[in-house]
Design a binder for these strands. Structure first.
Lengths: 204, 204
DNA sequence: TAACAGAACTTTTGATTAAATTGTTCAAAA
DNA sequence: TTTTGAACAATTTAATCAAAAGTTCTGTTA
């Protein structure tokens, strides 16, 4: 079966690409439909032929990014150790966030009520992470390296929350802001340490 | 030396008490200086004789609460185990927050730029916690229960951040809000688990 | 002079409006 | 079916203003 190249898909792709670049560069609210239309040399109205509205365009871009990252998450399997598994996932996620840092600007602003579709994507990623890592735990338990746990997923969940809580102690620790780009590396290092201690705490 | 009872102090206390109750019940922004003045049967202007302004009145109340809690923090010493030490501190803090939950309403609203004085108090509490717990670690290291660590304070700091990150996975995990009152118990249980794993991860 | 109160003053808040920008739809053309 | 220009609707921004609340002033009392 040959793959028919749908010209609609090509246009959609063009739009998605422009949107991604704009969102990445200027953030959601500073990107206008006019500008995207200009990028791809289409009328603004045509954007609405391909995408229902601006927020769903953003979601579509997000989904694309997420799909790429999902592949990365799911590709990693049978690690030499649980620690390796956690560290790899952690590092992958860190790179994912670094790479698209400004794109997630949307999250920081709309922090409160993100569209359901966004939460679904976040849920997908989260679910995949949990699935992958809890499997690792189960395997290690079978090997006898890790002591048996009731609910591997709950353990992974707990660690992910804990990792999420790690931040830099800024001078006098003011504000609880999202981590700034230049703090990410320090945070990443701290997280690696946390993972090591945590994993050791699970061992027999 | 006999303690002279300063009538000014008595009035200050009255004001602080009324303010505390008001802040606790209605929060900072829904409490007016008029109401406090009414409570203590003084003129509103008199409040400004005793306290520079509203925010510093709040800070004074906060400092009082903090002092009480500081005593609790510092009282706990020589625990049977490191785990006991962490769990005790964690439980104390949990009770402290539960008891004054609505008082901290101020934090949730002004989340961004709290007055410096507030951050100082938070710093005091944090410092005391770190001090206490890192001492426990140092002791346990000497006993050989825990394996040597470079920087005990950094370890405690990391754990505190991690604990701070623990939250409930609400249905579809929407929002990153401050934990609601009715979620506190679930969070506390998760934190206890995290402490156990973490401490075990530090052991020899 | 320290402790106080009434009234005046200043700042903040909330509601309202108007203007401008931007997102969205639609009728019609290619 | 795909595309557009133009109309339309929604959102944002700024400006305004009155009420409420915070703060200060002036002077009185003890």
């Amino acid at each position: 079966m040959s793959i028919a190249i749908d010209p609609q898909d090509i246009k959609k792709e063009k739009i998605l690409e422009s949107a991604y670049n704009r969102f990445l560069h200027y953030g959601y609210s500073k990107t206008t439909m006019n500008e995207i239309a200009g990028d791809v040399s289409m009328s603004k109205a045509l954007l609405y032929y391909y995408f229902p509205d601006k927020s769903q365009l953003y979601v579509a871009v997000m989904q694309k990014l997420a799909n790429d990252h999902l592949k990365v998450i799911k590709s990693g399997t049978d690690f030499p150790s649980l620690e390796e598994a956690f560290i790899t996932q952690l590092t992958n996620k860190n790179e994912f966030i670094l790479k698209n840092y400004n794109f997630f600007d949307f999250f920081r602003l709309n922090e409160q009520n993100l569209p359901d579709a966004i939460w679904e994507i976040i849920g997908q990623l989260h679910e995949a992470e949990i699935e992958q890592l809890s499997n690792c735990i189960t395997n290690e338990v079978k090997k006898g390296v890790i002591k048996p746990v009731d609910d591997p997923k709950a353990i992974v969940d707990l660690l992910l929350d804990a990792l999420h809580g790690v931040r830099v102690r800024s001078f006098s620790q003011k504000k609880i802001h999202f981590p700034k780009l230049d703090q990410m590396e320090e945070i990443h290092q701290k997280r690696l340490l946390l993972v090591k201690i945590f994993v050791k705490g699970l061992m027999n």
